[in-house]
Design a protein around this nucleic acid. Sequence first.
DNA 1: TATTAGCACTCTCTTCTAATGAGTGCTAAA
DNA 2: TTTAGCACTCATTAGAAGAGAGTGCTAATA
Lengths: 346, 346
Amino acid sequence: MLDERKLKVLYAIINSYILSAEPIGSRTITKHYDLGVSSATIRNEMSDLEELGLLNKPHSSAGRIPSDKAYRLYVNWILNQDPMTQDEGKKEKIKQILINESKEIDQLLQTSAKVLSEITNYTSLAISPQFKNSKVKHVQLVTIDMRQILFIVVNNSDIVKNAIFKLDKPVSNNTLNTLSNFLNSKLKGLSFEEIGKAFNSDDFKELIDYRQIINELIPIFNKSLDNNENVELFSEGITRILNFPEYKDIDKAKSIISFIEEKDLLLELLLTNSYKQDVSITIGNENQHSQLKDSSIITATYSIGGMTIGKIGVIGPTRMDYLKLINTLRLFSTNITEILDMLIGK
Amino acid sequence: MLDERKLKVLYAIINSYILSAEPIGSRTITKHYDLGVSSATIRNEMSDLEELGLLNKPHSSAGRIPSDKAYRLYVNWILNQDPMTQDEGKKEKIKQILINESKEIDQLLQTSAKVLSEITNYTSLAISPQFKNSKVKHVQLVTIDMRQILFIVVNNSDIVKNAIFKLDKPVSNNTLNTLSNFLNSKLKGLSFEEIGKAFNSDDFKELIDYRQIINELIPIFNKSLDNNENVELFSEGITRILNFPEYKDIDKAKSIISFIEEKDLLLELLLTNSYKQDVSITIGNENQHSQLKDSSIITATYSIGGMTIGKIGVIGPTRMDYLKLINTLRLFSTNITEILDMLIGK
DNA sequence: TATTAGCACTCTCTTCTAATGAGTGCTAAA
DNA sequence: TTTAGCACTCATTAGAAGAGAGTGCTAATA
């Protein structure tokens, strides 16, 4: 049904269309790809491919354009190939740029997104690390003055969260130190869920006087250990999407840019789709959201200490340069992971 | 030269043009504004106003559109009127929304920008607080484990900044406490500049062993006390700018959106233009940047404890609804200031 | 049986022309 | 000083004609 020649024709069309954004006719194929057959034969093959749902015609006398299904076939084929060996020189060069610009994690991701967008000329996306079931490494209460205290949580990825709060009645430095030590001894190594339980255990019954303080701590622990709510989405090079003829219609442009700027839906989408594969791709209508029906998203993961905790990717028309982008994203994925391990992990 | 009737005609044209975005003809004015004269008279006045550089013609047989100079005249006139009394009900309603959504300063500004954009249907801007010459309120060094220490600075606006760093050789808890106390005693109340001097004074000569630690602290102090570099720019409702016919041309849209997304230039612009007036307006070519030659920016300031430390504003075509926007921005300005004082100061 | 040349047909896109209409500027009268 | 009247200008729109790219079918060919 899908013999080799049909596939060759299909991939030739996909390739041409990715480059030109114009419907591809049979003669274009015979001219640019040496398949050893005439345009009439290609026409017949194209007709078959259309019947298979792999090609579409904008109108009866136009060339063909690939369907989402065709892109999926093509992308799966790419992903099944052995990954191309990375250009180490290029990789190192990018790594140096990223290292120089980034002192903090969020900054690293933002810079990565920026550089990624510049290199690829696509709009890029990145999410900040998602700490799920992180553990407490250290907690500390500090007096700022008699009525203000500062609370600090460090998690096992060495991320620091803090908050200041005011007290009804003054607390002495000593009391606070004792409380700090107590919290450390009881909570170190626990996850957010376990902390919830610990607070309700007998150990904490005696601290009834400090209930007010304890309650204030919970949201900070949440932010530090189970920050699903606090994951940030960075996008860079939004206007690059306007370079694609697909979005030359102002309403389409508005729709996709709004979707990206809105962040909520996109973030949810990035957080829920698979963290398993290194590269994950959704093509056009594979996506739930109607605003994305003409767009594709490619993402790659990054990790700290072996734990996959975030993603970086690009968004653009379904007519994407999948091959190039997959390789570039793999490169960024390794780079970010390496830099994170350097920046934080030991 | 500019008698009252001319002004009336001019303001009528500005008003109409703000609403319609179409060149205004003499008949439109006689129909919609009761000036008691015929269209021929208006035509003569318009001709005079054009000679004065206040009106332009897109082409010889079109109506007139206001020039930047005309908008400036109009805006100065508005700013010289007594501020309209604020709609307290509306103000309170917005305040409640802002309070509910905002637990932190950056979040407050982002939410404010979002709500501002929704209410006005313009693209909004906000910058996070700029701490210039803030003072140290409290510093603290905390051991996380033997080779990792956490450094914390609280400034006089109760903003907390921190960083973790690693040591070559272990430091005991006691040493660190002594060092914390020493730093507090010497640095409390100092500005960033003064801290630089203090570090070079005799007091710190004895700490030669801790030079490594001391050097790590400087960037954190900088961030906490003189954070010009770290001021963030939030923009919301980018796509709303695409609703204006001025930007229906995709290249114009790209240019302005890039400029906003780039952030650097816009941030610099917001930081340097006057913090003196409550509302500040730049119209079209009054602006240095060529990308803004067809756009206007209106900003209002906000403060903590009486100190003006940031801005919120809108950006759009020079054909802006200045009157409405000035009032809305004043409303946001007061609200943000009030919420900040509630959230932090006291 | 698979491939190919040839040709009629389809549909979009561009170019050209003519008509429409909003608006100005000038002149002469009130 | 104001106004009515009118010729003139220019952008915008609609319609018509022509060009061009491409398909799909048929009949001939290897």
